[in-house]
Design a protein around this nucleic acid. Structure first.
Lengths: 136, 136
DNA sequence: AGTGCTGGTCTCTTTTTGAGACCATTAAGA
DNA sequence: TCTTAATGGTCTCAAAAAGAGACCAGCACT
C-alpha cells in the first residue's frame, strides 16, 4: 500500500469528516463551508456579531450590496441556523436580524480568519502585485 | 452622538480594518476573504496543507472539480501567495503545488472554521431541515 | 501505429450575481 | 390634499462566473 495514500487518508479526515467511502464529494464539512462562501455571508455575520440590525440598517452599512443579495444572503444564513429574523408590528413593519447561539459559535471560528486577514492583507497584496508583475 | 453608531464603529473596525472613510466597501479584509470564498479554495488549501500534490493527484483527490476550475483556483491561490507552483522537467513535465509560508499561516486560521464545521455540521443540517419544513 | 499519461486551454451551456424598476402601507410636510 | 419619504421586500433583465466536455502537444510503451 502506498504510504502517501495512507498519509492522505489520516490527515484529510479533518476535512472530509467521514464522507462515505473516503471520497471528498458529498462531504458534510464541504456543505457547511459552502454556506459561508457567499460573497456577503462573512461580512453580514461580522456585522450581526456586533449587534442586531434591521434590514435597512444593514443595507446602509454595506453600501455596495444590492437589496436582492441582502435579502437572499440573510435568508440563507437564517436557513442554516446562524441568524434569527424577527418581525415587529410597527407601521410600517420593521424586521430585525440577530445572531443565534449557533451563529455566535460559528462566528467565533470565522473570527480567526477575519483577524488573520486584518493582520496579513498587506502581505497578500504584495504577493498579488509580485505575481502580476511576472505574468505581464 | 448616537451610542449605537459609536458601538458600530469600534467593533466593526475589525472587519473593515481602516477602510478609508469608514465605509465597508473597498476594505482590504474583504478582498482577502473574497479570495478564499471560491467554491474550491478552502478544500484545496486543506489538501495542500497535508502535503504537496501534483495537478493530476488533486484532480483525482477532488473528484467533482472540473479541470478548468482546478487550474483556475490553483492559479488564484498562487497569485495571492498561498501556493507555490513548481514544474519538474520530467517527460512529460510534472507540476507540483505546495503551500507557502503565507499559505500555511492562513490555513492555521482557516483550520478553526473547518474544525467548527466538522463538529457542528449536524446542527446546521438540523436547522436547515427545520427551516425548510416551516417554509413548505 | 495506436494508446495512454502529463497539464493544460477553448468553447458552450447553465447557474449565480448585479442593477434597478416596482409594490402596498403608512406617516410627515406643504 | 397632494407629494414625498421610509418600511422590507419581489420581479425582470443583463452581466459575470462556473460546470461539462472536447481538444492539444509531447513523449513512452507496446
Amino acid at each position: 500500500m502506498d504510504s502517501r495514500i495512507v498519509n492522505l487518508r489520516s490527515k484529510l479526515d479533518v476535512y472530509k469528516a467521514m464522507a462515505g467511502g473516503g471520497n471528498l464529494a458529498d462531504c458534510p464539512v464541504r456543505e457547511v463551508i459552502h454556506g459561508l462562501n457567499g460573497k456577503w455571508s462573512s461580512l453580514l455575520m461580522a456585522a450581526l456579531a456586533e449587534q442586531p440590525y434591521r434590514f435597512g440598517e444593514l443595507r446602509r452599512l454595506v453600501p455596495d450590496i444590492s437589496q436582492r443579495m441582502l435579502t437572499q444572503t440573510l435568508h440563507d444564513l437564517q436557513r442554516d441556523g446562524y441568524v434569527h429574523r424577527e418581525v415587529f408590528p410597527t407601521k410600517p413593519p420593521s424586521v430585525e436580524y440577530s445572531l443565534t447561539d449557533l451563529g455566535r459559535s460559528m462566528f467565533g471560528a470565522l473570527h480567526h480568519l477575519i483577524q488573520w486577514a486584518e493582520l496579513n492583507h498587506d502581505a497578500v497584496r504584495e504577493a498579488r502585485a509580485g505575481f502580476d508583475a511576472t505574468q505581464a
